[in-house]
Design a protein around this nucleic acid. Structure first.
Length: 194
DNA sequence: TCTCAGATCGTCT
DNA sequence: GACGATCTGAGAT
């Protein structure tokens, strides 16, 4: 399966975030479907790495169609894909639905099947239902940072399904949480078109 | 040198 | 559901 073209990412970041839902990520013999994304488009989203150019975040200002992987809280990595020329932007992949290589994912995540030797539905969901979790499950590290989409990791088209999309491009995560918007945008389809 | 973080997990209520 | 501990590295000063 051919990976998404670089031009797919050279569009409005919010649109890319929306279109990434339902796409398949394949890396290191495991794969999963993207079920939650978050768009970051720089100022005025003050909580975004794209709000300010630093050596780390420069990739969001200079490229589209590249992976931006950063380390957070001393424990976890977060996977982003850079977007649109002309302004800083990236889409954070927040959750995956595991498809293949589930055993490998469970091993990496330290999740063990019970007596029935099969993961429960709850365990299956918890494999990659968070930005840090999915990186752990797929074995994503900074080695993927600054590589082109399709180079080491493939992202290709799956059927579009209706999934939750969160986007804090207007107010930033911190303010969104302060204003309790996070709740709202998690339970409803919320897309800022700015 | 210091602060704090786009998360996760375990514990407590 | 709320809250604290985790503990490395990027960015600020």
């Amino acid at each position: 399966m051919k990976s998404l073209s670089k031009e797919f990412f050279n569009r409005n970041t919010v649109k890319v975030a929306k279109d990434l839902l339902g796409k398949i990520i394949e890396y290191d013999n495991v794969s999963g479907m993207i079920v939650e994304t978050e768009a970051y488009r720089g100022y005025p989203d003050e909580a975004s790495h794209a709000a300010k150019r630093t050596p780390r975040s420069a990739i969001m200002f200079d490229t589209h169609g590249f992976f931006y992987v950063y380390f957070v809280y001393g424990n976890y990595f977060c996977l982003n894909m850079t977007c649109e020329d002309g302004r800083p932007g990236a889409v954070l992949v927040r959750a995956l639905e595991p498809l293949t290589g589930i055993g490998a994912m469970a091993k990496r995540r330290g999740i063990r099947a019970g007596n029935k030797k099969e993961l429960t539905q709850k365990q299956l969901v918890s494999l990659a239902n968070g930005p840090g979790k999915l990186c752990q499950a797929l074995g994503i590290t900074k080695a993927l940072n600054n590589t082109a989409v399709g180079d080491k990791m493939k992202v290709y088209g799956g059927g579009m399904k209706q999934f939750r999309i969160t986007c804090a491009t207007r107010v930033g995560i911190k303010k969104a949480v302060q204003l309790k918007w996070r709740f709202y945008i998690k339970d409803n389809l919320f897309v800022s078109g700015n």
